[in-house]
Design a protein around this nucleic acid. Structure first.
Lengths: 357, 357
DNA sequence: TTGTATGCGTTATCAA
DNA sequence: TTGATAACGCATACAA
């Protein structure tokens, strides 16, 4: 029989211990601790005093098990947390709102690994989180739905899922595409390329289709390049740009599917003595923290990360309080164009030979 | 009586349901599910088949309540997750190792708010995490210790706590200071400033003292500037640099306590037509993702974030498996100098009037 | 205003 | 190899 010196995983005081010390039943203590209306304030005071004296700490597992209606945690699964995404901000919004109601967040980073994502789903289910906020790594969500069915309500966030059959906070990326082409066209650009990366999920497809549609609507030829993986779009931007420079096939404007990719493009252009935006305009997407640095001044789209988190956590809390009824909640958010110094008027020589009507 | 259509927070299958269907006691099912040696493989197979058929999902709360020795989660509290820190990487290392053992991470972001930090400590305790990995916002950890005492073992990470009485993975920042001065001195710099920000916690103090000691050891005069807050060190870097430019009091090299601050410094210098590193060298600390961008090429210190997370999670898992014995575990990590283009030889005119012996 | 009895889902102990 | 029973800490319905 092991007896840890520090007393962990050993005997923590329970409401029964308090009950003994105060001289009442553990039921009275339970009620007193949660400030029930049918307990005398004298007893409440006594109970609370003794509780803090002996270092009583409620046991969330026991509480949950006993009263089945109140889950104590919220789950969240994201593909990444690092510089390439902005889920840290969404997490902060979620976590803060949850902490306010004494819930905590179980966070899993799937690292764009399907097996890990499923593993986290299972963990969340076993922990009976009140809701699982998930930005899936793919639009194929059948396996996720199957794992969590009947156990945990799902809230999908991000650009990959936009179904009326699921709760979701959806980011509309096709709108970004329309705005990007609009903006560059107004600056005189006719030769606009789009840089994408693998995998070709719904997020990327929306940008691609939105871009192609907007270009064709103006009688312009869409040109799409695809390179690299979502885990390292910076390098993809560098590689693409270098090959374009070599082939002498540069447009007057490049829109990149991610800020990091745009940074790679700008770095490569500058190394090759191109001026931004005088020679070429560059745009990104996501408004990541470094985009505003004066060395880049990247024109980009701000995705409302905080609003995303807030919408999601509100859904989660609603579900946890009122149950998950038939009706699916659906929130749609759009990115906002942030104009900075990386974009400017199209260079004159190019504009002259452009296909203006 | 509410009956949620989707069946959440309602009746999930339990081992008793499996027991009924298979025709054995729930105890046999419990054992079968965990592959106990004293159960026939025939029964195991049957049980597992039925379990997956009816969508059985273990209940971690019940499991924990029953067998007190195995906590199922690990807690983690950090001051921030965003671009100004690098805890996302540490988190990933921790989370991955934990998921491997079917543990999940309860994450709290204190946002450098003391009340929130305490709130999260309480939540972690109520959830009975097996260990709490915390990077406290201050070196004053008495309140944290008091809240968690007897309930949750603490593992301190980062530069703020370096006590033999606590488990900790400590980052030694004074070593960085020595290396920074060493390196700049070897490049010919004699006029080296240190830029710091509030609050003056242990992390900052280590850099300050290490720097001053190293400078004095070379008969150089230490010059320390203090500006802004940890939440926005970029602006602090800009402000400090502008005022130095105005007063014409620029050194040949500046070492900043954070990369973000160094970026602010570089941006401001470049806006004022200073060349880096020809006119002035700039160094940072932390090797954040943007430091390597070719527009900055920031010489900095890489703090071993992954190693930090790995050391911490190993401690946590050890404690969860073997209990928390008397002996405190102590790991010390040092940052590694990353030489890039933002530092170079001291400008000649300055070197001539420098105080060389 | 307080107490008794019962149950939540699982594991541990011991007996069969 | 399996099963009956008790226990984990707390909350609820109902009784006192």
């Amino acid at each position: 029989m092991k007896m840890p010196t520090k007393g962990f995983s050993h005997k923590k005081p329970t409401i029964k211990d308090i009950a003994k010390l105060v001289g009442v039943s553990h039921v009275a203590v339970s009620k007193a601790l949660k400030d029930a209306p049918d307990i005398s304030s004298a007893l409440k005071e006594k109970v609370n005093r003794v509780a803090s004296e002996i270092g009583y700490m409620p046991n969330a597992s026991a509480s949950y098990l006993s009263s089945k209606n109140t889950a104590h945690n919220i789950g969240m699964i994201v593909p990444s947390l690092g510089a390439d995404t902005a889920y840290d901000e969404a997490f902060k919004a979620i976590s803060e709102a949850a902490a306010f109601k004494n819930h905590s967040i179980l966070l899993g980073v799937s690292d764009r690994n399907r097996d890990l994502e499923r593993q986290y789903c299972r963990i969340m289910c076993e922990n009976r989180v009140g809701a699982l906020i998930i930005s899936p790594i793919s639009s194929e969500i059948e396996d996720i739905k199957q794992i969590c069915a009947q156990t945990v309500p799902l809230i999908f966030i991000g650009g990959k899922v936009d179904s009326k059959e699921q709760h979701c906070v959806h980011l509309n990326y096709s709108k970004s595409a329309a705005l990007a082409v609009d903006y560059l066209y107004a600056l005189g650009h006719r030769d606009i390329f789009l840089f994408l990366y693998h995998p070709m999920n719904k997020t990327i497809m929306q940008k691609k289709e939105g871009y192609e549609k907007a270009m064709r609507a103006r009688n312009l030829t869409p040109t799409v390049y695809l390179e690299g993986e979502s885990a390292d779009t910076y390098t993809a931007g560098c590689v693409l740009t270098e090959s374009l420079i070599k082939s002498g096939n540069l447009p007057t404007a490049i829109w990149c599917a991610s800020d990091l990719m745009a940074i790679g493009v700008m770095d490569t252009l500058k190394l090759n003595h191109f001026k931004i935006p005088e020679d070429i305009s560059v745009m990104g997407h996501d408004n990541l923290p470094f985009s505003k640095f004066s060395a880049y001044q990247l024109t980009t789209f701000d995705v409302p990360k905080k609003a995303l988190g807030e919408a999601a956590v509100n859904m989660a809390l609603t579900i946890m309080e009122n149950g998950d009824d038939e009706e699916r909640i659906h929130v749609s958010l759009e990115a906002l164009l942030i104009k900075r110094g990386s974009t400017g008027k199209a260079p004159v020589k190019i504009r002259d030979k452009g296909n203006e009507i």
